[in-house]
Amino acid sequence: MQTRQFDLIAFDWDGTLYDSTASIIRCIQAAVADVGGTVPSDEAAGYVIGLGLMQALAHAAPDVPQDKYPALGERYRHHYAKHIDDLSLFDGVLPLLVSLKERGYLLAVATGKSRLGLDEALRNVALKGMFDGSRTADETAGKPNPRMLHELATEFGVPASRLLMIGDTTHDLQMAINAGCPSVAVSYGAHGSEALTALGPRHLAHSVRSLHDWLLLQD
Rank of each mutant, 00 (worst) to 15 (best):
S134R: 13
I28L: 06
G189S: 09
Q29M: 12
K128P: 00
K101L: 08
H203G: 02
L163T: 04
A56W: 11
I166S: 07
F131C: 07
S210P: 05
A81K: 14
L152C: 05
D138P: 05
E139T: 14
D86F: 09
E120M: 08
D67R: 13
A185D: 03
F131A: 03
P201W: 12
L127A: 09
K143V: 04
E151I: 05
H212P: 01
D7Q: 13
R26G: 01
G92V: 05
T154S: 14
F90T: 03
A81W: 07
Q218T: 11
P65Y: 09
Q66H: 15
I177L: 15
T16C: 09
A30M: 11
D14L: 07
E74T: 15
L173T: 01
L87R: 00
T21M: 12
N178T: 08
V208L: 05
L96E: 06
D168W: 07
A110Y: 07
G36I: 04
D132C: 04
L215G: 02
L164T: 04
Y105P: 00
G157P: 02
S187K: 03
L51Y: 06
S99F: 01
T38N: 02
L17N: 01
K68Y: 11
Q174E: 15
A195Q: 14
L107V: 03
D219R: 15
S114H: 08
R147A: 07
A110R: 03
P201H: 09
G167E: 13
